[in-house]
Amino acid sequence: MKIMARRGISSLYPENTMASFQAAADCGADGIHFDVHMTKDRQLVVIQDEHVNRTTDGAGLVADYTAAGIRQLHAGSSINSTFSGEKIPFLEEVLEWAKEERMSLSIELKNNMIGYTMMENTLLQALYRFGLEDRVILSSLNLKSMLKIRRLDPFIGTALLCTGRPSNAVQTMNKLKANEIHCETTFLFSSSGRQAADQHVPLAVTISNDTGNREILRNLGVDTIMTDCPHRWFALTL
């Protein structure tokens, strides 16, 4: 199974920052999962929430900031003062770094609450510039956005992002012409999860701090673990 660092090693480092991503690379993670939003001047930035309040010393919507304004925020103080100088990365910074580190990428477009104009086109063009289209899986809770991505690029890797235990996950994945399903652990034990495993649909499961049982997950058809603690998974004895 592949181990993807969810927002980097976000259990120890400020999430979605270069420090967190570098720590993931250093521990041997196969890749990183991160989220993107768009600034007022249409720059893609790497942050989870619509608001900057939780992870920075600022306040307000990402969409109300210019790129220059975003750059003034400190994104590391939520962990401790050691990381107080960390910034919200621009997408292109992360792509440049990932290309050098040979990391795979799982990128979630956070456009289900705010429909950022041209987000899909902007993201795809950035991936093409860095030659990373073969090393990425794109996902979003906005299914119209996922359909748009598939129209723009018939070959880019995409995933159905599902929460809970949706009964029609495989059917929805096929409708989106997606390549895999990104899910929570509970989905694996549902009838839809078993259907996906029986049809050999690639499954990536989000697990936070619990290392669980690797063999059970593998037997349930899991191909990729997305975790806040990739270093703990590498410490397990198979």
Rank of each mutant, 00 (worst) to 15 (best):
K144D: 08
V62G: 09
G193E: 02
S106Y: 14
T172E: 12
I114W: 00
D41I: 11
M118P: 05
G28S: 10
N80T: 02
G60W: 12
I216Q: 15
Q125S: 12
F83M: 07
D134A: 13
A67W: 02
A159P: 06
L61D: 01
G212W: 05
D35I: 01
T39D: 02
R151P: 03
E93H: 11
I9F: 02
I9A: 01
I70Q: 03
G212I: 00
R6E: 12
I70A: 04
P89N: 05
R42P: 00
L73A: 04
T122W: 01
E133D: 14
H200Q: 12
F130C: 05
N111C: 07
N121L: 06
P166W: 09
P154E: 11
Y116K: 06
H51G: 08
L203W: 01
L176Y: 05
A19H: 05
G85Y: 09
G212R: 06
Q125V: 11
L152Q: 01
E184M: 14
D223F: 07
T55K: 00
G131I: 09
D30F: 11
V46C: 11
R165I: 15
L160T: 11
T55I: 07
C27E: 05
I207N: 12
S145W: 03
D198G: 10
T237I: 13
I149T: 09
T172C: 02
G28A: 03
R151V: 10
D57S: 05
A5I: 08
G85E: 12
L109F: 15
M146V: 06
S191Q: 13
Y65I: 13
I216M: 12
G60H: 07
A68Q: 06
C27R: 01
T117G: 08
S84V: 13
D198R: 10
I3E: 00
A169Y: 07
R165D: 05
I3S: 00
L91G: 15
H182G: 09
R129S: 13
S10K: 02
Q199F: 14
P230I: 03
N209V: 05
N53F: 01
E15Y: 03
G221F: 14
G85V: 09
S139A: 15
G85I: 03
I32D: 09
N168H: 12
I216L: 15
D153R: 04
G31W: 09
R129G: 11
S139V: 04
N213E: 08
E86G: 12
Y116R: 00
A24I: 11
I181H: 06
A235S: 14
M113G: 00
I225R: 10
N209T: 14
L127V: 10
L105G: 14
L217A: 11
R7F: 10
S10Q: 09
N53R: 13
S190H: 12
L176D: 12
V94R: 14
N112P: 01
E100Q: 15
